[in-house]
Write a protein that binds this DNA or RNA. Structure first.
Lengths: 228, 228
DNA sequence: TGGGAAACCTGACATATGTCATAGATTCTG
DNA sequence: CAGAATCTATGACATATGTCAGGTTTCCCA
């Protein structure tokens, strides 16, 4: 099993601020786990006794609302650490983490990081910096949700997916989401999402092939977001 | 001028994790400022060279969206520290902070806390804990925004105002917001907000007197939120 | 204290969005 | 490989919400 010390993934998250010894301790206590597409890493309300470091694959962080729909709050990928917030606040998980494709994640028991969190200010500050960033993003999502139309948010989602996960050689978005998940990200009904996809396609902004989606006229999508 | 060491407000925020000496330094460098109703403490995009500790009054943290409407992301009151996120991330402010009523705030230059932030893990962890809490709240707002109707969010807003700021002896909410600000919190048009207020009043859920609003039938509002 | 600005309120209307029903496409599995 | 199950797609419709326009009340300060 690979050691955290050598893990490249680590460079992307707060673990890089750990000392050699701290990292060794984490490495010794961690366990690696496969998570198949559709399986959950943890569920809303669950008590977490550690955090999960994503080595591969993509997870959706979502919350079930009263009306039975899953609102996706964030997509997390390689290098991100899940469950941090809950462990730090000492609360149960506020969101569920479900694998969108096959994943590989490392579980790090909280005992292995709590100590560092109280002793190594560099590490704590790194975690803080990441959380500050997440908070800003969350604030931006709030504004988008309340002030933009579904069509605009849909266009934004496509651009986000392109920028974050890239596209394959045929020009389709690399991260393939079900229509339901797209609706979940955008915060709308599945039917509305599908309808807007059809419309964008008809207008030539995007192309589709099965569930895959490709951006054709980025300019047009951007104009739409800007309000034209 | 009062000293931070003796400030009760401090008990409510992360400053309480500072050592005597650290606190002294903060106290020596801080300046206190009056902010009149409607004035801004800082604006979106502005570079902050410190944080603001609220001693009195309430501030709205909002962001102007493309369509020209102000979305209120959060209300901040006595004890809360504003601008933390920006200073920590080293970014310009993501939100504007505007006084809802007359306020008294202390400005603490970032030099006075940056050092502590890198040296005193207790303090850093305290800040982290607060931010973790804010992040959870932001996530919840996202879900509310996308999955609840305006009517439900309006009802929630009233209950939130009651629970957070209380009510006066006549049963009106202590924190008086303009209809525009209510619309901003809920994320809707002013007219829609007013219409729903009228409806709630007609149904006897709330009462109004000028711009003041009082909750009459809390049960009904809760039912509405739950989806009945 | 009176006049004007700002805030509040209401109606009429257009439209965006959700819901329900149903059909076609895709994929999963025995 | 057939049939089931799941996902995608589309139409018809109801409704929630935004917009515009006009009125009324409240507030402020000269």
């Amino acid at each position: 099993m690979s050691r955290c010390e050598n893990c490249i993934i680590r460079q992307f998250n707060s673990l890089r601020a750990m000392s050699k010894e701290e990292l060794k301790k984490v490495s010794d206590s961690k366990t690696t786990r496969e998570v198949k597409k559709g399986e959950s890493i943890f569920e809303e309300g669950e008590r977490l006794n550690g955090v999960f470091c994503v080595r591969n694959g993509v997870s959706k962080l979502s919350k079930l609302s009263a009306n039975g729909k899953d609102q996706i709050v964030k997509l997390a990928t390689k290098g991100e650490v899940l469950g941090q917030r809950s462990v730090i606040a000492g609360e149960s998980a506020n969101l569920s983490a479900i694998a969108i494709n096959n994943m590989e994640v490392c579980f790090i028991p909280k005992e292995s990081i709590e100590n560092t969190l109280h002793k190594n200010p560099d590490f704590t500050f790194e975690v803080l910096r990441h959380m500050a960033h997440d908070l800003k993003e969350a604030d931006d999502v709030i504004v988008n949700m309340s002030q933009k139309t579904v069509k605009q948010r849909m266009a934004e989602a496509f651009l986000y997916l392109k920028n974050t996960y890239g596209e394959d050689k045929d020009g389709f978005l690399s991260l393939v989401l079900s229509r339901e998940d797209i609706a979940g990200v955008v915060g709308t009904a599945v039917e509305s999402a599908i309808r807007i996809i059809s419309e964008f396609k008809k207008k030539g902004y995007i192309k589709t092939s099965g569930k895959r989606i490709g951006i054709v006229e980025e300019r047009k999508l951007k104009d739409l977001i800007a309000g034209f």
